[in-house]
Simulated scan of single mutants.
Amino acid sequence: MHNANTMLYLRHAELLRDKVPSFGSYPFNLPAIRDLERLVFEKHVTFLVGENGTGKSTLLEGIAAAWGFNPEGGTLNFSFNTRASHSSLYEFFRIARGVRRPKDGFFLRAESYYNVASYIDELDEQLAPSPQIKDSYGGKSLHEQSHGESFFATFVHRFGGRGLYILDEPEAALSPVRQMSLIARMHELVKLNSQFIIATHSPILMSYPGADIFLLESEGIRKVTLEETEHFTVTKAFMNDREKMLRELLVDDE
Rank of each mutant, 00 (worst) to 15 (best):
P129C: 10
R83E: 10
G139E: 03
H143A: 10
E111A: 09
P129I: 02
D104Y: 02
L123E: 15
S130L: 12
R83K: 12
V99Y: 01
T75L: 06
P102I: 02
Y114R: 15
G62E: 09
L60H: 02
H143W: 02
E122W: 07
L76N: 10
F107L: 08
S87H: 08
F107K: 09
G73K: 04
E72P: 11
E111K: 14
R97P: 00
F69M: 05
A96E: 08
A128Y: 15
E125S: 14
H143D: 02
Y119Q: 08
A128Q: 15
G74H: 02
N81I: 02
S136T: 12
L108N: 09
S85Q: 11
S88M: 08
P131W: 06
N81P: 00
S79T: 13
T82H: 10
Y90Q: 06
D124C: 11
A84F: 15
A64T: 00
G98I: 11
Q132F: 01
G74A: 06
F93H: 02
E144S: 05
F69T: 06
N81E: 14
S136H: 03
S112F: 05
G139K: 01
I120N: 11
T82N: 15
F92A: 10
T82Y: 12
Q126I: 15
F69W: 08
F69R: 08
E111S: 13
E72M: 07
D121G: 03
G73F: 10
R97W: 01
A117C: 09
A128E: 03
A84Y: 15
I63N: 05
P71V: 01
F93V: 05
N115A: 15
R109M: 13
K134G: 04
R94W: 00
A96S: 12
E125V: 15
D121F: 04
R101C: 07
K140R: 11
G105D: 09
L108Y: 11
G105S: 08
V99R: 14
Y113L: 11
F78Y: 10
L142E: 06
A65K: 05
S118F: 06
R94N: 01
S87T: 15
N81A: 07
G68P: 07
G62N: 07
K103W: 10
A84K: 14
P129N: 13
Y137D: 09
V116T: 14
T82M: 12
S88E: 10
R100D: 12
R101L: 14
V99P: 04
E72G: 10
E61I: 07
N81F: 10
S85F: 12
G74F: 05
R94Q: 06
R100E: 12
E125G: 09
H86N: 12
H143L: 04
L89C: 02
K140T: 06
I133L: 15
L76Y: 05
S85K: 09
G68M: 02
P102Q: 00
H86K: 13
G139P: 01
A128N: 04
W67A: 06
D124P: 01
N81G: 04
Q126T: 13
S141L: 00
E61T: 11
L89F: 04
D124I: 05
G73E: 01
T82W: 10
N115K: 11
F106S: 09
V116D: 11
F92Y: 08
D104K: 13
V116F: 14
F107I: 03
R83T: 13
S79A: 14
G62K: 04
S85M: 10
L127Y: 11
R100M: 13
D124W: 07
N81V: 03
G139Y: 03
Y119M: 11
G105A: 09
D104R: 05
E91S: 06
